[in-house]
Design a protein around this nucleic acid. Structure first.
Lengths: 136, 136
DNA sequence: TTTATATGCGATAAAATTAGTCGTATATAA
DNA sequence: TTATATACGACTAATTTTATCGCATATAAA
């Protein structure tokens, strides 16, 4: 429990690798995949999502690849999680507008509100840690 | 991602329910299960684990049930997670003594140490929130 | 001492989530 | 024109989580 998905892990690894090679040619997903030992197809999809969210830029064709569009001191872990359409949700009901379909106990539940508080704290923590701080 | 398992959720619900009824007869797992809408077999096992860890006390036989052994102001979320043999492990490699079987990249990994730091922060946060604070 | 009602617990099954793969289309520099 | 890249939906596999089953043991009350 409380784990970071491989998608997020791979994305952090790749983003850092791209950031560190910004001054050279752009890195292809094939090269990132080979160098970091990340499954190629999976990585490609992650990078495509990051393109759509404006975090990286892609160049198709021969000698194509990816470049970082944002400052790695400003990109937070929460930003990355968001970009991959994931989220921090401690329980089925810990989001605005949850109803009985999400949890049978919701109407007289004594843990939902404290869980929401805790979730907010974790969100805040994840929003305060940047890509640079996530790597050494 | 980043969720609290049903086991932990059910345990918190049950522990609070037991705590609130401490002055009456001890609550049977059947009653807790019925009242809180938690699968009976699952809840029983969770309570059995909590007995083994000294968090609750059980009384078998007719009119048996469970009683809390610890102060609900001192029992932390981390204590409960521990008692259920779960843990906060952000990645496969974020524990002492992780090796190549846990991650192919471990020897020149630039995210392990920051992940460990983040994990420690979450552990600390979870150790500071008590059963009382987890309920309202 | 019998009975009803509890907990104890290993084994297994079902469900859900996460991770990984495949096929095909499109883009583009050389 | 060709080689090398990204784009992306559909699908499969693996893992983890959640739930169930069957049987054993304990004990208070009738």
């Amino acid at each position: 429990m409380i784990k970071i998905s491989k998608s997020v892990e791979y994305s952090i690894l790749a983003l850092k690798y791209i950031a560190d090679n910004e001054n050279f040619a752009s890195l292809s997903s094939r090269k990132i995949s080979d160098d970091l030992n990340i499954p190629y197809d999976l990585l490609s999809k992650l990078l495509q999502k990051l393109v759509r969210k404006g975090i990286v830029q892609s160049q198709q064709g021969k000698y194509g690849g990816y470049n970082l569009l944002v400052d790695s001191n400003k990109l937070s872990l929460l930003n990355i999680i968001d970009a991959l359409d994931e989220n921090i949700q401690l329980a089925n009901c810990t989001f605005d507008g949850a109803n009985n379909e999400d949890c049978a106990r919701i109407n007289n539940c004594y843990i939902r509100s404290p869980f929401l508080n805790l979730q907010n704290k974790i969100n805040k923590m994840f929003n305060e840690i940047t890509l640079n701080e996530l790597t050494n």
